[in-house]
């Protein structure tokens, strides 16, 4: 579960060997905690976008961003506050499911916007892409049926379009 010390940091980094190690190493040696981390190339093959959910007090966030920004391979970095960002996360979960409970579970999953992606006699595998909060809700509900395996990707995020246009906080946080 997320707590109030969670902040989203979004970074464009050079797509080079060892960049993730530099980022992870910096977190380790400065004593910051990574809650989740998602990395993938962007449309520009030379760049990857890294979305990190950081577990720090607000007063330390600037220190995290400033230290990360000192890494030569970090091209651009900003904090995204949840209200100014579109966030998504993907969840896969295999749930125990007796034949009697099957339709009940399917109802819950579809009501929340998830999908059933694999089925056998005693289990269901569910996929859902949504906001982390809705995934929390789904996870809680599925818990009562018995989750066998679960994998969440950690969130990815982009700034909201209106927010981009104003880009006020962004320019403050985008340290030169």
């Amino acid at each position: 579960m997320e707590n109030k010390n969670h902040h989203i940091v979004s970074a464009l980094v050079e797509n080079k060997a060892g960049v993730l190690a530099r980022i992870a190493g910096l977190f380790a040696r400065r004593g910051f905690n990574i809650y989740s981390l998602a990395v993938a190339p962007t449309d520009d093959a030379k760049l990857s976008r890294v979305t990190i959910v950081v577990d720090v007090e607000a007063s330390l966030l600037n220190q995290v961003v400033s230290q990360l920004n000192k890494l030569i391979n970090v091209v651009e970095i900003r904090e995204l506050s949840p209200s100014d960002a579109v966030e998504r996360e993907l969840l896969l979960a295999t749930v125990q499911c007796s034949p009697e409970k099957r339709s009940e579970i399917i109802q819950i999953v579809t009501a929340l916007g998830g999908e059933i992606v694999d089925v056998d006699i005693s289990c269901l595998t569910i996929e859902m892409s949504s906001t982390p909060e809705r995934l929390d809700t789904l996870e809680e509900l599925l818990n009562s049926y018995g989750i066998l395996r679960i994998q969440r990707t950690g969130r990815v995020a982009l700034p909201r379009l209106g927010y981009l246009a104003e880009s006020k906080i962004e320019s403050e946080l985008k340290l030169a």
Partner: peptide, 14 residues
């Protein structure tokens, strides 16, 4: 050595 010195250099290259 690039791994070892990652945290004590401004940057390193292989």
């Amino acid at each position: 050595i690039t791994g070892i010195t990652m945290g004590i250099t401004k940057h390193n290259w292989l």
